[in-house]
Amino acid sequence: MARPLCPKGQRFQVRPVKFRPRVADDSVNVSKGNPLREFCLLFAGLAGVVFAGYMLLALLTSWAIKSLPLEAETWLGEMMVRDIPGKASPALQKRLDALLEHLPKDSPLRKYKFRVYLLDTDEANAVALPGGAIVVYKGLLNMLDSENELSMVLGHELGHFAHRDHLRRLGKGLVLNAAMWLIFGKVAGSEQLLFPLLAGLDSRYSKGQEEAADAFGLRLLYLRYGHVAGATEFFRKILEKDDYSRFKYLLSTHPDPKSRMEHLKILAQRNGWPEGRPAPLGPDLKALLEKNDSKK
């Protein structure tokens, strides 16, 4: 019994097909549509997802660092200091302790046990690590001419502790890296593109943090010396040192030195903090620098 296959009830029959050569139709196997459009759509989608995730993480971290107990922070800090080949410096510690005495009695910073480390590199920088460790780079120390400038640098870092920026940066970086790794794993190139974009997004936020830390440092400087000499010296030296361009600071995490100087000047004026005479560097600090020079 044959099944009726054709509409008219005819039996299905194999008929010889006449072969007619023809050019393959190239529209079948290749999707039509502009690849650029597809690219834009997908990229926008990805950027949206990452942005939303990033914002969520930012919220989460800022919530987490508020409730992170000091013990956990100290523990974290000890882990990090172990990796940094800095040496504890008694000369710097003396300056820091003098500054700390002028902190307000109810300051949350009183709970910390601050330590200063000196790192032997030419880079001019200083960082605040969790748990109360401040690392000063030798390159920065070499740029200083007075005790006041050093106090300003240390005060700035203390400001980061007071605003808990040191944790914020750490937490966010950690979470962002983990998220990127989870999303892309090793098999991707797109994080190369996204990461700097997010860093740029973040820079405005962290510029605000830097200015707040500057303000904290300035106040401490005034409380310590009774005037604010040396507050802007360091920035002026940076400006003189490298060829200044605003462009360079566009995506940087720190505001450009010029606007930081102006910000500090305005603050000092508004509070009526006078400009005094800076105290020259003490002999123990000079010894630190000379040791460095003789090595060169």
């Binding site: 549509g33 597809e38 690219f39 997908l42 990229f43 989608g45 990805l46 190139g189 797109s190």
Partner: peptide, 21 residues
């Protein structure tokens, strides 16, 4: 460009049209 497009495609799924050609 095609590889980048395919990577993006791998995240969301669908036809990898950039490799079809």
């Amino acid at each position: 460009f095609k590889r980048f497009l395919a990577i993006l495609r791998n995240i969301f799924g669908g036809r990898v049209s950039s490799y079809e050609s």
